[in-house]
Design a protein around this nucleic acid. Structure first.
Lengths: 197, 197
DNA sequence: TCAAAAATGGACTGTCAAGTCCAGAAACCG
DNA sequence: CGGTTTCTGGACTTGACAGTCCATTTTTGA
C-alpha cells in the first residue's frame, strides 16, 4: 500500500466509519470483522489491505476517530470559556452530548477491549485527556485574567478535577442511564471556580 | 446442586478467587476458563457445576466480589466522616488504595466485558455506586449537623459530584498511571464542602 | 454400613471468528 | 494504449475457547 487511489481512500473510510457505527450500536465485543464487512459491502481482503494489523489496528483507528469526535462535539463552546454564561453554555452542551449518546461510550468500550496494555491505545486516551484538560485550563486562565477567578487557583489542577468529574459522571451514566452525576460534577466544579472570585 | 458440602463450597470459592486473581493480573479478555482451571487445579465439570451459567455467571460473581472489596478497602474511614481530619484521612486512603492497584481496575474491566447490557452486571455497579454515595452523603450530613458545612448544601448532590470525581480520577489513572486527577478531584470536592462552612 | 447425592476428571464437540491466499478486475500513468 | 500498481472477491486454514457428557470417586446422612 505505497499510495492510495481515490477509490482506495474511499473504501478505507467506509470500513472505518462502518466499524465505528457498528460499535456504537452493538458494542465492541459484539462487533466482528464479518459484521463490518457485511455492513460496508467490502471483503476480508479489503479490510486487511487497508488495516494490515487486522482487528486491533481497526479498533485503534476507531478509537482515534471517536476521540476526535469528543472534542469536536464540544465546539465552539469549549474554546470560548471567557464568561460565566459561556461556561454554563459549555456545561449544557456536554450534558446534552452525553445524554444523547445514552449508555454507550464507544471510546471507553474500545479502550477496555484493547486493554490499557497496548501502547497505541493508551496514547489515544492520554492525548485526548491532555488536550481536553488544556482547553479547560485555558478557560480558567481567561477568567483569572478577567478578574473573575482567584489568581491563586492552579488552573491545571482545577481543570484536572473538573475533567475527572466529567469522566466519572459519564462512566456512572453508562450503568445508570442517568446524567445526574455528570451534572452534579460539572456544577460543583464550576461553582468551585466561581467561589474563588 | 441442591446443597453444598463443605468441600464443594471450598472448591467454588477457590474457583471464584482464582478467577478474580487471574483477571487482576492479566485482564478479563486474557482470562479464559482454562486459565482459571489451571490456576485453581480444578476441572471444567467443576466450574460448570458451581457456575452453571458458565463464563458469564463466573464473571458476574467476580464483579460482585470486587465490588464488595471496593467499599471494604475504605473502612473504617468511609463510615466515620465526622471531622475534617477524618475526611482527609479517608481521602488519603482512597488515593493509596488506587495507587497500589495500579492501572488495572478489575471491576471496570469486568463490567465493560459483560457489557452494560446484561441486567445483572448493571445492578452490581449501580448498587455499589448507590451505597458509596450514600455513605459519603451521610458524612456530609454529619458535618452539617456539627455546623461545619452550610445546611443549604444538598448532601446527595454533593456526594454525587464527589463520587463522580473519584470514578473519573480512577478511570484516567488507568490510562496515565498517575493519580494526579484522582487527587485533584478529591481535594476539590472536599474543599468545596468546606467552602460552605 | 450402604444407598443416594454431590463432586470430580478430562476427553470431546461445535462454533465462531481472525487472518491467509491467490486469481482476477479496475485504476493509474508514462 | 499497455504495463504496472492497486484493489477486490471469497474460499480456505487455523486456532482457540465455551460448553457438554459420562464414567468414576467421594461425601453424606439415615
Amino acid at each position: 500500500m505505497r499510495t492510495l487511489t481515490r477509490k482506495g481512500a474511499a473504501t478505507r473510510q467506509r470500513i472505518l466509519e462502518g466499524a465505528a457505527a457498528h460499535i456504537r450500536e452493538y458494542g465492541v465485543a459484539a462487533t466482528t470483522l464479518d459484521d463490518v464487512l457485511a455492513r460496508t459491502a467490502t471483503s476480508k481482503s479489503q479490510l486487511f489491505h487497508y488495516f494490515p494489523g487486522g482487528r486491533e489496528e481497526l479498533l485503534l483507528a476507531v478509537a482515534r476517530l471517536e476521540a476526535d469526535h469528543v472534542l469536536e462535539d464540544q465546539r465552539p463552546q469549549l474554546g470560548e470559556l471567557t464568561s460565566w454564561p459561556a461556561w454554563r453554555s459549555w456545561r449544557d452542551k456536554v450534558v446534552d452530548r452525553y445524554r444523547r449518546q445514552g449508555r454507550l461510550c464507544p471510546l471507553n468500550a474500545v479502550m477496555s477491549q484493547l486493554g490499557g496494555a497496548t501502547p497505541g491505545a493508551q496514547a489515544v486516551v492520554t492525548e485526548l485527556m491532555r488536550r481536553w484538560q488544556a482547553e479547560i485550563a485555558t478557560g480558567v486562565r481567561h477568567m483569572q485574567d478577567a478578574g473573575e477567578i482567584d489568581p491563586a487557583l492552579d488552573p491545571d489542577r482545577a481543570a484536572a478535577a473538573l475533567l475527572a468529574g466529567i469522566q466519572g459522571g459519564v462512566l456512572i451514566q453508562m450503568s445508570t442511564g442517568e446524567t445526574t452525576h455528570l451534572e452534579a460534577a460539572l456544577d460543583m466544579g464550576i461553582a468551585h471556580l466561581r467561589a474563588g472570585a
